[in-house]
Design a protein around this nucleic acid. Structure first.
Lengths: 147, 147
DNA sequence: TATTGTTATACTCTATAACTATA
DNA sequence: TATAGTTATAGAGTATAACAATA
């Protein structure tokens, strides 16, 4: 067996390293959300509605980069669990708001996300974390616009 | 319509921002690899074998975090296209090496990955890119070990 | 014409379980 | 017992196309 670790063609590739880290963080988050019976995508939808009561389904999709076609079953599932309500606003759009149960679950979900951050980035100070988050946000924002 | 953009609960969450950026970068890469008829996972396997001729299938999986069960059809597909060869090493393991066509395609794939990096991170200097890549690698390496 | 929401469907990657064969 | 490879299957997220209803 060779003692030398082989050269790694992916070491300098930010795209690859980003993906590996993102997958590891998501796996930790998915596990943490399991007791709440929420998948990561469902949790983000819940938090988005909590932050924007009355937002429409397609606007949630635009903000979270989830296609309309994929929003439909997501919202239907959350509604079936009594976590959110729909109220027609103009005949084709519906305003989404959380029920009390939905709001409570959203709070739990956010607490879990913060716990996930603490588990995954224990050494990074809060300041550096925020600055890095802003950099990442700027990068994908530019890319999404370029498409 | 409200003029104020709503508060963003995800702004400070590194996990969320990492995921959005990773998805945007991967989408760009997938598009760039399409002319080569390679999916991102196939390209990484090809590059890993190019860097480690004679590596076994399960070792590739370990290095790339791809489960054995998912490696099987991946390798079979690449072999069916004449991109790699298998040579038995001990009756249950097989050494993987690229054919000439596979090696040529791996070079093209790596060129595309570098082009992808240039498109996605145009402002980041090479030095900062490498330092960030190392940080990300350290982070997921720690997380993978903790599981 | 454009937008909202929906359904159907497919693709990519990941996950587990179970099996065979070999070490 | 542990490992290598395989098969089958399921889950999660994403993608496109097409449709009805509304603006």
């Amino acid at each position: 067996m060779a003692a030398d670790p082989p050269s790694d063609p992916f070491a300098p590739l930010l795209g690859y390293q980003l993906r590996r880290l993102s997958l590891a963080v998501m796996a930790d988050l998915a596990e943490g959300l399991q007791p709440l019976r929420l998948r990561p995508a469902e949790a983000t939808v819940l938090l988005r509605i909590a932050a924007n009561p009355g937002i429409t389904q397609s606007e949630v999709g635009r903000l979270l980069a989830i296609k309309r076609a994929n929003m439909a079953p997501l919202i239907a599932g959350l509604e079936a669990r009594g976590l959110l309500c729909r109220a027609p606003v103009d005949g084709r759009s519906q305003a989404l708001t959380l029920t009390d149960a939905g709001a409570a679950l959203a709070r739990d979900a956010y607490a879990e996300m913060e716990a996930n951050e603490a588990r995954c980035f224990p050494t990074l100070p809060a300041e550096g974390r925020l600055r890095l988050a802003e950099q990442l946000r700027g990068a994908w924002s530019r890319l999404d616009r370029a498409e």
